[in-house]
Design a protein around this nucleic acid. Structure first.
Lengths: 102, 102
DNA sequence: TCTATTGTTTGACAACAATCGAACGATAGG
DNA sequence: CCTATCGTTCGATTGTTGTCAAACAATAGA
C-alpha cells in the first residue's frame, strides 16, 4: 500500500464523524492524538489486537478525523484538527472537553 | 405506559450521545426540536414509518438527548438542552451549527 | 360503547459492525 | 538473503441496528 485515501475537507460528513467518535476505543485514540500529537499505531497500548486497532484507525481515517503518514514500517497518525475546526467549528473542542480531563 | 424513563443528568454518556446523533434521521429530529421547541412525535413529517420513528425517539430518549412528556394521546418531545449544556458544554451548539443552517 | 387517533411493542429480516486469529506485505537491519 | 517488526487484509463469528408490518394500548370524542 503506497498511499492511504483520506476524504477532502469538503467531504467531511457530520454523521460519519459523530459515529466514528461514538466508540470508546476510537474516542480514546482521538484524545491521545489531541494530547500528544502525532503517534504511530503501535504506541497506544489499548486493550485490543492489532487487527482490531487497525480497523478503528481505518474508521477514523475514512471519516476524516485522522490522517496517516507512512514512513518506513510505521504509520504516523495525527488529528486533522484544522480541517475539523474549519468544517465543524467547536465540535472537536467540545468533544474533547466532554470526554474528560486530558 | 405511564411514565417514560430518562437517564439523569449525571448518567449521560458521551459515546451514547454521539451515537444517537450519528443517524441522519435522529439528527434531523434534534435540529427541529432545537429550532421549534417542544413537538409531538407525529409532527415531523419524516420519511419513515411510525414504528421506525418511535424507535429513533427511544434511542434519543435513552441517550438523554430528549425528554418525552405524555399528555393525553400525544407525547411531546423536547431537547434536554440544559442537561446537555451542563454535562457537555458547547457540544450541542457545535453539532447544531455543523449540521447546517437552521 | 364504538371509533378514530397517537404512539409503542413485537417479530422478523437484512445490513452492518466489532472482534479475533491467521495470513500477508512492506521495510529495516543484520 | 534471512529475519524481525509493523501494520493491513481476509475469513469467520457474534452481536447490534435500521426498517417495516402487524398487533397492541391508551386516550378523546361522538
Amino acid at each position: 500500500m503506497r498511499s492511504l485515501s483520506h476524504p477532502g475537507r469538503d467531504q467531511l460528513d457530520l454523521p460519519a464523524v459523530l459515529y466514528a467518535l461514538s466508540d470508546p476505543t476510537r474516542l480514546e485514540i482521538v484524545r491521545r492524538l489531541a494530547a500528544d500529537g502525532e503517534r504511530a499505531c503501535g504506541t497506544f497500548g489499548l486493550p485490543a489486537t492489532k487487527a482490531t486497532l487497525s480497523h478503528h484507525f481505518k474508521v477514523l481515517r475514512e471519516a476524516g478525523l485522522i490522517q496517516t503518514r507512512v514512513e518506513g514500517v510505521h504509520r504516523y497518525n495525527s488529528l486533522r484538527k484544522q480541517d475539523l475546526d474549519a468544517r465543524f467549528p467547536g465540535l472537536l473542542k467540545a468533544v474533547l472537553k466532554a470526554s474528560g480531563p486530558c
